[in-house]
Amino acid sequence: MDDAHSHVSREVLELCLVIRQIGKSQEDGRAAVEFGRLFEHYVTISNKVVGVLLRARRQGLVHFEGEMLWQGRDDHVLIMLL
């Protein structure tokens, strides 16, 4: 169980690092990236980017509008680090 939790935590932290690296700094200083760009970049790392985003949101690490994100439809939704 601890190994699974540790793996999930690593994935969430890696996602936040990617957002920080490829995102743009907002007026409040927080990094943000559009979902389409994140998906294109992150899909080379993992095909479960949406699931990791949802976990990161539940942990209070990122914010985005909507319940679920879909490639194509939601490419311009802004993902913001908190």
Rank of each mutant, 00 (worst) to 15 (best):
N47A: 11
I45H: 09
V77Y: 03
A31T: 07
R73I: 15
E40M: 06
D75L: 01
S46Q: 07
A56L: 01
R37P: 05
S25W: 09
K24S: 14
D74R: 00
L13N: 12
D28W: 03
L54Y: 09
G51M: 04
Q59H: 09
V77L: 01
K48W: 14
D74K: 01
F64W: 02
R58L: 10
R30Q: 11
M68L: 08
V50R: 06
S25M: 09
S25R: 13
D2T: 08
F64Y: 14
K24H: 13
K24N: 11
R73L: 14
A32D: 07
L38V: 04
E65S: 14
L15Q: 00
G72Y: 06
D3R: 12
M68D: 13
E11P: 10
K48M: 09
Q71R: 11
Q21E: 12
V77P: 00
R37S: 14
H7S: 10
L81T: 04
V33R: 00
S6A: 15
I45D: 00
E14Q: 07
L81Y: 05
V33C: 04
R55M: 05
S46W: 11
I45W: 11
K24G: 12
V52E: 02
C16W: 12
G60M: 07
L38H: 02
E11T: 11
N47P: 09
K24R: 15
T44S: 10
L15S: 02
L53V: 06
L13F: 14
N47T: 09
G29M: 02
H5W: 13
V8Q: 14
H41S: 11
E14I: 08
V50P: 01
S6R: 14
D75H: 08
L13Q: 13
G29Q: 05
M68V: 10
L78V: 13
N47W: 11
I19E: 05
H5L: 13
R55G: 08
H41N: 07
D75I: 02
G51N: 05
V33S: 03
A4C: 04
R20Q: 13
C16S: 10
V50H: 05
L82W: 09
V52G: 01
V18M: 10
L61M: 10
I19D: 04
W70R: 15
E67K: 06
E27F: 06
D28A: 05
C16Q: 05
D74H: 06
G36R: 04
G29V: 02
W70I: 15
I19S: 00
R37L: 13
V18W: 03
